[in-house]
């Protein structure tokens, strides 16, 4: 019997101690790594040094090409990115491409208005899924299959791309600010070799005058 309080005391002490230990672990002290063990990572994965951009799946920034941003003021100018060529609409400017954006533009008239081209492997998730995703970005509900089937098409990259045009409030990826009275004009081309999406977003007032320029840009894209 007399040992019992001791035992309970030790349990409580243990509780208090473990609390104390967890509260104030000393970070300044170097801590030892675990003992070595055989890794499941293949040597091939680390033998070739690769740049951070490549490892992290980010398109290298335009540090090497300082004048990647070339704005066009007057007539459409020719532009291109590697294999891809296009006619830049008047007043638009080219931005540096990113890992996702093969071609990246600022639309004339508003800082927030942008347009870019993405390529995705396979069908990029499918036509309907991408349309619904864009609907969601515009704060709209999904379209029915019938509505999707009834969407018009426009030429792009040698195919007939589906044209969508939604109004709503835009909250795109990356959380770069919400545009209340926004518009999204997009072309979706889903073909056997892959999917291409050209998408223009921005304030509705700005985009109203840029739809023709957008369609012209789409028609001018070629490999």
């Amino acid at each position: 019997m007399p040992t019992l309080p001791f035992r309970t005391g030790s349990l409580l002490t243990f509780a208090v101690l473990s609390l104390a230990v967890s509260a104030c672990s000393d970070r300044a002290q170097p801590s030892e790594l675990s003992a070595p063990r055989e890794s499941s990572t293949p040597a091939a994965a680390i033998e070739q040094p690769r740049s951070s951009a490549e490892r992290l799946g980010v398109q290298a920034p335009p540090a090497a090409a300082p004048n990647a941003t070339n704005a066009s003021n007057g007539a459409p100018t020719s532009g291109g990115n590697g294999a891809l060529k296009w006619e830049l609409p008047a007043g638009w400017s080219e931005l540096a491409p990113t890992s996702m954006r093969v071609a990246n533009f600022r639309v004339a008239g508003d800082e927030r208005a942008e347009c870019y081209l993405t390529f995705l492997a396979g069908d990029g998730g499918g036509l309907a899924a991408n349309i619904q995703r864009w609907r969601t970005q515009m704060g709209q509900g999904p379209l029915s299959p019938q509505e999707i089937a009834a969407l018009p098409t426009k030429p792009m990259l040698g195919g007939e791309a589906v044209l969508v045009d939604f109004a709503g409030s835009f909250s795109g990826m990356g959380g770069g600010g919400k545009i209340e009275d926004a518009r999204l004009v997009g072309l979706l081309l889903v073909g056997p070799q892959g999917a291409a999406f050209l998408k223009m977003t921005g304030p509705a007032s700005t985009l109203a005058g840029q739809v023709d320029a957008f369609l012209a840009l789409a028609a001018s894209l070629r490999n």
């Binding site: 609907r135 969601t136 704060g139 709209q140 509900g141 999904p142 379209l143 029915s144």
Partner: peptide, 10 residues
């Protein structure tokens, strides 16, 4: 109705 429903569905 469908227009609104699409909106509210979001």
């Amino acid at each position: 109705l469908f227009d609104l429903a699409h909106q509210y569905d979001a």
